[in-house]
Write a protein that binds this DNA or RNA. Structure first.
Lengths: 216, 216
DNA sequence: CTAGAATTCCATCGTTCGATGGAATCAACG
DNA sequence: CGTTGATTCCATCGAACGATGGAATTCTAG
């Protein structure tokens, strides 16, 4: 007998998986308080009681969404890390930006929910943590900004946040920024990648160059 | 006889002004749906009906908050523009970043509400626009990225957004990022300014240099 | 086919939220 | 003092929301 979780993971067409999928999108668009269980149920085309049957109450469902998103983001980051391993810094940054931007454009609810967590508060206490700090430290190590993941100083962590948030902003703000720039989706994605690489890469490359100079 | 608006502007201790002030903070922390009129009333120490008496319904109050914030942000941007006028690019960016960061740390509800608007959606339709596009075009002109504010192409607008959002992120994410870096408020502010200048300035300065080279 | 388990929906409950009428209080002025 | 208008609070309403019991339906094992 499969457990309920295994079922949901294995069969993306199962009711439980369909609800989780819709919940990701709607929580990502409207935030925790802006989302009603009725909105999610309607999106799936089911009754609210079916939703509660599978996922418990609203907070439980939200926490499941957060865990699911952490899982996807972690997978994607590990994939990118393998991809850029051993390459020079500028190339590593360019590939990371391109790959993560592509991935997140496909799953905008991921940066959306992360940004909601960063910037907003919830009336309920102790909603599930998004494990971003863990990810940020991993990236800092992958970028050679720190050696040990355990005791990272503030500066490199904040630098990594500049890169990650820079990407998140353009994904989550797509509707707003596209209206502002009057670009279609494809052109917007291309411009975003260009601008991100233009803005983010020089600083790190310049410093690396200076470091080498001092060594020599 | 003064109008109600003039009264509120002139006397910051008036009930109407006190309500608007509390509403800015709470809408900024919890977002539109995360905020209840009761929370605002309790913050001021009054009854909900007093709130409705002065500002109408929840949407009206929210729109007043948005207008108020647009006013403050616009003033601050114009002040910075005068301050940096005529200086070289790197200096202009550094001063702008320092000044805007200081200002926004004092008024975190401003970036908070702007980011909520970017990234989140509301169940109600047609909530008051935050006039960010206008501001972004102004800054692009002030940075000599565009000549005419009217017909700005996408690229410079997206570059300006990278700068503005970079600042907003660290302000609005203070609680989260400070916990992550274990910095006190003062140290956090200092690090943020350093990191912002480190990340954002080189790209623009480098391009300016290349531009001059091509001219020569 | 059938019995039992799993799933889905209908009806409904209690709470919270936005909003308002109307009484009570306060301030200004002759 | 008394009248008038502005302000504030109390009581309460209807709608929306989260949640659940239980009937109806579907699925599954034997």
């Amino acid at each position: 007998m499969k457990t309920a979780l295994e079922k949901a993971r294995q069969d993306p067409e199962s009711m439980k998986a369909r609800i989780l999928d819709a919940a990701r999108r709607i929580f990502g668009e409207y935030g925790y308080h802006g989302t009603t269980t009725r909105m999610i149920a309607q999106e799936v085309g089911i009754d609210i009681s079916t939703l509660h049957y599978h996922w418990g109450d609203k907070k439980d469902l939200y926490e499941a969404v957060v865990l699911d998103i952490n899982k996807d983001l972690g997978q994607s980051l590990r994939y990118v890390e393998k991809m850029v391993h051993g390459r020079p810094l500028a190339e590593r940054l360019a590939i990371s930006i391109d790959t993560m931007t592509d991935f997140l454009f496909e799953h905008p609810e991921i940066p959306n929910l992360i940004l909601f967590r960063y910037f907003g508060r919830t009336r309920e206490e102790a909603l599930q943590e998004i494990q971003v700090p863990e990810f940020v430290a991993d990236i800092a190590r992958s970028m050679n900004l720190i050696q040990d993941k355990r005791n990272a100083s503030a500066r490199p962590l904040l630098e990594v946040l500049a890169v990650m948030n820079g990407i998140y902003n353009y994904i989550s703000g797509e509707a707003y920024f596209r209206a502002m720039t009057r670009l279609d989706r494809e052109a917007y994605m291309a411009h975003v990648k260009e601008v991100l690489k233009f803005v983010l890469i020089p600083a790190f490359v310049q410093r690396e160059g200076k470091g080498d100079l001092e060594k020599a």
